[in-house]
């Protein structure tokens, strides 16, 4: 754990891991989406509309996994003061928010033909919209802390507090009567036919690999930015002393 907190060692690892994850993710995603969007038979009730499943569910998974990533990074940052943890949290926030927006958009498009409405304020939909706003809040806080030049722990604390929403999203369809159906996949049991389930798992894997690659790439970019900033500062200081 401490080994990876060393930025130089992290960069050496990330240099080859980033393209590997991105390329692997693109290949797996393209294959699984072709499988899901073209090959899979239509659903008994929804017909071809069911194909949105293969984008909606992986996006929902990554929107929640993304928040757990930045909450975990916040915990490590607060406790062990690892310099990379804060960077990891910031790097995960934007792709997480993007997947959250994709999930809400595809869900809305799916709801119109199946339920007969674009949006309802039931427990699942509302708690997921809250997650999107939490992402916006986290991104704004992290950006503000960065602008001050200092290293603020406010974003890390916010990430940990926001994590309370994740079990609420998960349980919202069980605790409250909602228009959204209850979970299809529970531990060891699935109400999704294998014909849909395998391409769905493949799409989730592909999306996750892309997410990991994007997070690593963004961490490298943030580290490079910080390095450039320090170099500029040093130069400016040197110039000021020489004058």
């Amino acid at each position: 754990m401490h080994g990876f907190a060393n930025p130089a060692r992290f960069l050496r690892l990330a240099r080859w891991l980033t393209p590997l994850l991105l390329l692997g993710g693109i290949v797996v995603t393209a294959a699984s989406l072709t499988w899901g969007l073209v090959e899979v038979p239509p659903d008994r009730l929804m017909g071809d509309t069911v194909r949105i499943l293969f984008i909606h569910v992986p996006s929902a998974w990554l929107a929640m996994a993304g928040w757990m990533t930045l909450a975990g990074a916040g915990l490590v940052e607060l406790t062990w003061r690892h310099p990379l943890a804060g960077i990891a949290g910031r790097a995960a926030a934007t792709p997480g928010a993007a997947f959250c927006a994709i999930c809400l958009a595809t869900g809305s498009i799916w709801a119109r033909p199946t339920w007969g409405t674009w949006w309802v304020w039931d427990g699942r939909l509302t708690s997921f919209l809250v997650l999107l706003f939490l992402y916006f809040g986290y991104i704004a806080l992290a950006a503000a802390a960065q602008q001050d030049g200092g290293h603020s722990r406010v974003a890390a604390i916010f990430g940990l507090i926001g994590a309370i929403n994740i079990p609420i999203i998960n349980r919202s369809v069980v605790w409250w009567n909602s228009l959204h159906q209850p979970p299809s996949i529970t531990l060891g049991k699935s109400a999704i036919d294998p014909a849909f389930l395998w391409p769905l798992f493949a799409a989730m894997l592909g999306f996750t690999l892309i997410f990991g690659g994007v997070v690593l790439a963004r961490m490298r970019a943030i580290l490079a930015d910080m390095q450039a900033e320090t170099r500029l500062r040093r130069k400016a200081r040197g110039a000021a002393e020489a004058a």
């Binding site: 899979v40 239509p42 659903d43 008994r44 159906q181 209850p182 299809s184 109400a191 999704i192 036919d193």
Partner: peptide, 9 residues
């Protein structure tokens, strides 16, 4: 309200 089952036609 859709149920949680997804089954091909």
């Amino acid at each position: 309200k859709h149920d949680e089952r997804y089954v091909p036609r």
